[in-house]
Simulated assay, not measured.
Amino acid sequence: MDLTILFSPIDESLYAGLGAPSSFFRSIHAFTEKMPDYRGAHIAIFGIKEERGSHNNKGTASGPDEIRKKLYHLKKGLGAYRIVDLGNLNIGHDVSESYVRVSEVCRMLLEHNVLPIIIGGSHDLDYGQYCAYETMEKLVSLLNIDAYLDLEEKSESPENRHHIHKILLHEPNYLFSYTHLAYQSYLIDPQSVSILEKLYFEAFRVGQIRTNIQEIEPVVRNADMVAFDITAIRSADAPGNANAQPFGLTGEEACQICWYAGLNEKLSSIGFYEYNPSYDDAHKKTASVIATMIWYFIEGYYNRKNEQNFKSNDFMKYSVSMPVEPEVISFYKSKFSEKWWMEIPYQNGKEKYSRNSIVPCSYSDYQTAVKGEVPDRYISTLAKLL
């Protein structure tokens, strides 16, 4: 497919004067005069200036280019970059068509093993990101990072307030797990959290993350796709949003999560949404934070360890005898990264669950099993595999 007809090139003002070979911009291939060939690339960045799904955060259409201004000025990180910037995806005649366009571009990239980094635009664009997996013939784990749960009914709210509800009800259903990070209790209906728990999905408050952010790493490591709404970041660090809150993740914590996401070998797409330059400060602080988050994600990507073959000598296997069902829980520990995984059995005839039967976990899950208790992560995953 000729992507040139779907995208608009990057305005020269965004990269003018960037002559230093060490700059991020000079280390990638961007759509300036000619569309770069995405085939063979590791990562493809593209923006979408779609804001019609937003109710009170109009202005997000200007977000992608403001983020680029900051990202292009950063220095190239480690690794042999094979990154393209496809420019900005042209929006559809309505928001539904924009979802389709996001889906089609992401699907095409995924089929060529190219990881899309989407710069929005309103958060509901993650519906298009999710739909890209429909033909992949695999179950998908979605990680959503947002101060709000966005589970409202369609008739009562704009698109960016019910898009998660829309994903949960999407047919055909290929969603294996849904995890929500950084919600703020005073902004959401408690019944929404109860709904997620009944579906054996997980939701973590900001306070839970801050207590021990290392315990969030296995959660991030389990995701196939990430949708990051910058509303989750506190207004002191990211004021560029109509819904910015005084409390939330710090910029450093957001970068840490993006680093974890980049390291995740399962993860195949990520989107950054709801940045509104009209609410940002004079120095465009929020754009700088998001650009740095993207930089850390890419840095994590180029530090992946290819830890997927659990039968290799690169792993130590620990079998823990239990006083209750199950009789044994098997754990795997990487000799290189010292990360942990836990094996959960699935029933014969349900081979579609095979790629989700060994789940990321933490050392504390292993310690829980040694004490004779079944880890919560084991119970919730087993419920999804039955």
Rank of each mutant, 00 (worst) to 15 (best):
D376G: 04
K305L: 14
S194G: 11
A227P: 02
L142K: 12
A223Y: 09
D314F: 00
L18M: 07
G17D: 07
H162Y: 15
R304T: 02
T286H: 01
I195V: 15
P360G: 14
P64C: 12
T60V: 10
G262E: 03
A232V: 09
K284T: 07
Q208P: 00
I230R: 07
N276P: 04
L86W: 09
W295L: 09
I257D: 00
R304N: 01
F228W: 11
A223V: 12
F247K: 13
E217H: 03
H112C: 15
K138E: 13
Y296P: 01
D85W: 08
S268L: 06
L139H: 15
E66Q: 08
R304F: 10
V206K: 10
G121F: 09
S380A: 11
D37L: 14
K166S: 13
D314E: 05
S364K: 08
L169R: 13
Q367Y: 06
I118H: 08
M108V: 03
I213T: 09
I67N: 07
Q184K: 06
G251E: 01
D126K: 02
I216M: 13
V220Q: 14
A30E: 08
E12S: 11
P246Y: 06
A223C: 12
R107N: 14
I216G: 09
S23V: 04
A282I: 07
P345E: 11
Y133I: 02
H283S: 10
Y363P: 01
Y353C: 14
Y38I: 05
S337M: 03
G17V: 05
K352S: 14
K49W: 00
E159Q: 10
Y279N: 07
S103N: 05
